[in-house]
Each structure stands twice: as C-alpha cells, then as structure tokens.
Simulated assay, not measured.
Amino acid sequence: MGATPSGLLGSLLPRPDSGSHWALPRPDSWVRCYPVRTRVPIRRCPSGLWYLRRVQIRPTLVPLGLALLSLGCAAATGRPRAPSAETAPSPQPSSEAGETSTFPAAPELPAPRAQVRAPRRNFPWLGAFLKDQGGVRVFRVLRGSPAARAGLAEDDIIVSAERRPLGRSRDLIELLQERPVHAELALEVERRGARRIISVPLEPAPVHEDIARLELVGFEAPEISGVVTFQGDVSSLRELAGRVVLLEFWASYCGACRLLAPELEKWHVEYSGRGLSIVGVTVDPLKLGAEVARKLRMTYSLASDPAERVTNRYLAREIPMLVLIDRKGEVRDVAIGPSPERMRQLEHDLRELIREST
C-alpha cells in the first residue's frame, strides 16, 4: 500500500500492517467544521474537513452516530462494500440467549416534533450513545432513532450483537460498519437483570442537522448551566426567561464560525433591544476564546464549556451550530453551517418570534 498515511485522513484508511482492520479516530476527539465556501461530501474525505480537538480524549464515551460517519469514506479508500440487504438477509432474533418473560418495559420517549429535511446518507444509523461501563452500556437514546423505535433504553447493557459477544462499544461499531443500510440488527440486551433479544431495523442516517432537530425542536431547551462566562453575565437560560435566545456553538479553529461572526454581531446590534439574546458557547479555554472574540469584534454574551456538558446536551458535534429558542424556552429550529439560505430563514424566524409578544 506504500507509505503509511499520516494525519487524520490517514486514521480513516486501512493500516498497512493490519490487514482489513480499520482504525477509527476516537469520536470524542474530533468535531466537524464546515468549509467556508461549500459543504464537501464526507465520502471524499478531504483533509481539513474534520479538525482534531485539543481537549482531553475520553475513549469510554463513543457516540455511535458520529463514529459511523467514517463509513462514507469506504468508497474513496477502496474498502470492500457490505453486501446489499437482498443478498445478505439478517438473522432473525430468537428466544434464546437467556431471554426471560419478566423483561422490564422501556420508558417511552416522546415522538419527534420535527421532520427530516435533507436527503439521508448511505450508511446505517442506530441513534444510541454508548460507554464502556460494566459492559457496553447505553447512556442516551435519540428521539426518532432506530434504537428508540426498537425499545432500547438508557442504562441497557448490550451483551451481544448478531450472536457475537461484545467486550467494548467499538466491537459494536465495527459490526455496524459491515451491515447493509436497511438490514435488521439483533441485539441481546440486559435490563435490570433480565435479558431479551431486541431487533433493531436499521435505516439510512440523517445529516447531523436533522438528527439535532429531531432531538431538540419542539421540546424545552436543555439548560446551559455549568458554562464559564467570559463576556457578558449570562450563565443560565433561566436568566433569559421571556426573551428570544439564539445559542451559537463555535470554536476558534472553525473558519466558518469566523465567517458567521459579523452576521451574528449585526443581529445582536439590531435585535437585542427588541428582545433577542445571543449567547455563544465554545469549548475553547477562556483566554483563547476571549482573544478570538476580541479579534472578531464579538460583543454578545460568550461562555466556555470546557467539560463539553452543554455541547453534548445539544449534540453540537458540527459547527457552527445555531439553536433558536422562543420566549417560553422551547427550541424552534436548529441550523448548522454558514448557508446563506439557512441564515435568511433563521433571521426571518427570529423576527417572527420577537413580534409574537410585542
């Protein structure tokens, strides 16, 4: 295969010394930042589309939906494709593997109140976040996802998948990479001591903006407490009750975020006196965030989220990400990237929200 690939692009390619094994970057160590001029399809794997974060990596937290984005690189790197659903039917779940009749019911998640807008991708989506804690443990299930519809729940332990024992969450990710988009995935799940086989009908993954919209739009906005304010004095959404809020997730290394800053500053000047509050949240350290804000002349409220708790609550894994919240604290829309069309729509929506109670 020649020289060993280097950098982040190299981490997505098969290693010469590992046969067909694929080495994936740790999902919590990177975030997508849209190119300034265009959205480049991820399957082309251009260098610079994914940026490494200079933060402490937590390998035990593995967001499945994000790790699966590397599947789009298969066509570009020559990795053999999985057989189609027609030629490789999935084994049907059985009543073996210790299934009991007292398996507790999963709490029902509220149905999504938003619709998928963009075309879906050509790789499967499970929609669960996992951590390696006493086995492969589910710590979050996303609304409207295959995992939610199949009945997976928080704190479930996935013992095996397709009859293969799972020692760590990465084992399940690697298995998912081999599955056709519309296949079913048989998972043996342990819940409060009882076990059952759960069949998950996989489906093509939505783009990340739609995933965030399914999870957030129409529901109460997650609190932002825990951030460290370095400009302005906003540290909680409760302090902004009765105002329209625009949350911006950004970072110093994101060129598209820098491009967006003047537009958001213009909105801040024009609408802050009419009931709009813009709050920028970054994972940058305080000193770096303040320095970049000064250079970009950002005067609206800014806060650092070094532990990424708020970033994770909002699924802000692609930036810049804007979340529009109405005066009642309900999320009304999510936009990712500096698309002029989306920005025009977002400005129209925030104007309407401002007018609603004036």
Rank of each mutant, 00 (worst) to 15 (best):
P14M: 04
L24P: 00
P27D: 09
V31G: 02
R32V: 06
V36Q: 08
T38M: 02
P41R: 03
C45Q: 03
Q56H: 07
P63D: 07
T77I: 11
R79G: 04
E86F: 09
T87A: 12
S90E: 02
S101M: 14
F103R: 07
P104F: 14
A111M: 11
Q115N: 14
R117A: 15
R121S: 15
K131V: 06
G135N: 01
L142K: 01
R143S: 05
A148E: 03
R149N: 04
D155G: 02
E162D: 12
R163V: 02
L172Y: 04
L176P: 06
E184M: 06
G193Q: 08
V200C: 01
P201E: 05
E209D: 03
I211K: 02
T229H: 04
Q231H: 14
V234F: 05
R238I: 03
R243N: 12
L247K: 12
S252F: 09
G255K: 07
A261V: 07
L264Y: 11
H268P: 07
S272I: 08
R274Q: 13
G275M: 05
L276V: 10
L276A: 09
V279K: 10
T282N: 05
K287S: 12
G289S: 07
G289N: 10
D305T: 00
P306T: 05
R313W: 07
R313N: 12
A316D: 10
I319M: 11
I336N: 01
S339M: 04
M343L: 15
E347L: 09
E347D: 08
D349N: 05
I354V: 13
S357M: 09
S357Q: 13
T358K: 08
